[in-house]
């Protein structure tokens, strides 16, 4: 394993994007970085600016309103970047499937690297998903 991959997989900085979620998934994402679960064990930090982040954690069924914003925030992130879709809505639209105003999943707008199912997924599941993403990137 080369040193860049080593560094990249050991320091995933997150940015959290709410693409029209009901806040349940957001609370679970925030719970994953609280002392009880402590995502910083893996070197992950929650960052405010997309310029600083490596992993975008997207929650919510992407509404047509938020689509352009999601794309723009994704484009503002520096390469290499990863996207994690958290929750049933972010994967397929969830209960909002076939609504006139949703895109039915993050992967219709930007490429997604990991899906974490659940409504809403537990913090353990989010941690597991992030670690699996890191393993697929060569952890």
């Amino acid at each position: 394993m080369d040193i860049v991959t080593w560094a990249r997989t050991r320091s995933p900085w997150l940015i959290h994007f709410n693409a029209g979620a009901c806040n349940a998934c957001d609370i679970e994402v925030v719970a994953a970085i609280t002392p009880r679960f402590d995502l910083e064990r893996f070197g992950a930090l929650l960052k405010g600016s997309p310029r600083h982040a490596d992993v975008m954690v997207v929650t919510g069924s992407v509404s047509r309103q938020v689509r352009e914003r999601l794309k723009r925030i994704y484009e503002q992130m520096p390469e290499p970047k990863f996207v994690v879709a958290v929750g049933a809505c972010a994967i397929s639209g969830g209960v909002f499937q076939q609504c006139y105003n949703v895109m039915e999943g993050v992967d219709k707008v930007i490429p997604v690297d990991a899906y974490i199912p659940g409504c809403s997924p537990k913090p353990e599941a989010i941690l597991d998903g992030v670690v699996k993403l890191l393993k697929s990137a060569g952890y």
Binding site: A7, R8, S11, E40, R41, F42, G43, P80
Partner: peptide, 27 residues
Amino acid sequence: NRVGPLYTGWEGILQPLADSIKLLAKE
């Protein structure tokens, strides 16, 4: 009441180094 960086080197001692190398290699 957390543990902080844990898996990067002994007790995460290489964490700042990993952060720096990652940032140097980014766009």
